[in-house]
Design a protein around this nucleic acid. Structure first.
Length: 306
DNA sequence: ATAGGTCAAGCGAGG
DNA sequence: CCTCGCTTGACCTAT
């Protein structure tokens, strides 16, 4: 049996509960950004960056080799260039040190930008915003000196269907070519959690076969949008798209089952995960998407003696 | 110090 | 037409 790395996303519950908290989620609402501007954004960004380093160090100490970095490191960064931040020198220096740190300690870090990144959009402005946001993510990895590869992936969903999946997939592939190389070399796509949207098979033929970028297999989403494939065959198809890079898969479970509350949407994530994750013998890196974050991973490992 | 209302962006499902 | 869910609950103001 292969040993798979298991990771968590963005927030460390233990460190976030400490006083003073170690936390990368400092942000602000529009009104505050309008009044306080980039100077305050930079201040929050610097604090977030410092705390990211502490989380990575905690990961090393506790043996976590796989971690998703929050997309909220720099509040409102779509509205300015990172270089414009008053604290840019200190921030870029920290990012560079973190890059060395994860490289030396074999910690895989990834990004998962928000659902507002819609490369399929017919609205030019939406596509522009998407290119900008993805480019900032790539810029952060560049500042960490992480070489452009899907090992440090930037993962997104396809976006809208607009009643015509085939033409939407085509637009995705056309707009992909507008992305800078720093993004193209890192971009991956993930299967959706609605039956009308993109299954692994849709991504394989509509994206991978055209522009050759890997597919992140999400177990939970597959349950709502399987495209007629079994879990095993969908996983295998996704794994086959990764080349020499260890594939990433996402795993989560339904909150409504955990809480025994059918008012909660079945797509919503549970605090912890309970079922054994079958990787069908493949060596993959498993990103656990559970609200209890690293605590969910630890509980899972203890249940199955991993 | 805490509670409650509010909060950038896109999309689709469900009430 | 509004709310939820997703990358991720946090921010802000009034009490």
């Amino acid at each position: 049996m292969n040993k798979n790395n298991i990771g968590y996303a963005c927030i460390n519950m233990e460190l976030a509960s400490q006083s003073p908290k170690i936390y990368t989620g400092r942000s602000m609402i529009k009104k505050t950004f309008t009044s306080k501007g980039i100077k305050y954004a930079s201040k929050l960004g610097l604090e977030n960056t410092k705390d990211l380093f502490k989380i990575l160090q905690w990961n090393k100490k506790t043996g976590f080799k796989f971690f998703r970095i929050t997309s909220n490191l720099f509040p409102w960064c779509s509205e300015y260039d990172l270089e414009e931040m008053p604290d840019y020198n200190e921030i870029s220096s920290l990012l560079s040190q973190m890059g060395q740190f994860v490289d030396k300690n074999n910690i895989r870090v990834t990004f998962h930008p928000g659902p507002f990144n819609v490369l399929t959009s017919k609205n030019e402005k939406v596509v522009e915003n998407c290119i900008n946001d993805l480019s900032i993510h790539a810029k952060i990895f560049d500042l960490m000196n992480l070489k452009p590869s899907t090992y440090n992936k930037i993962n997104i969903h396809i976006g809208g269907v607009y009643g015509d999946k085939a033409s939407a997939l085509k637009r995705f592939c056309v707009n992909f070519k507008k992305l800078p190389n720093s993004v193209q070399k890192r971009l991956t796509v993930e299967n959706d959690d609605k039956s009308s949207m993109y299954s692994v098979e849709d991504l394989y033929f509509g994206v991978y076969k055209i522009i050759n970028i890997p597919i992140v297999f999400d177990y939970h989403h597959h349950k709502f949008c399987n495209g007629g494939m079994t879990e095993k065959s969908a996983l295998e198809l996704a794994v086959s798209t990764w080349g020499d890079v260890t594939p990433v898969v996402h795993y989560s479970e339904s909150r409504n089952l955990e809480k025994n509350d059918n008012k909660i949407k079945p797509q919503a994530h549970s605090d912890y995960v309970y079922q054994f994750i079958d990787t069908y013998g493949y060596k993959v890196d498993i990103m656990i998407e559970a609200k209890a974050k690293e605590k969910a991973v630890n509980k899972y490992k203890s249940i199955y003696n991993l």
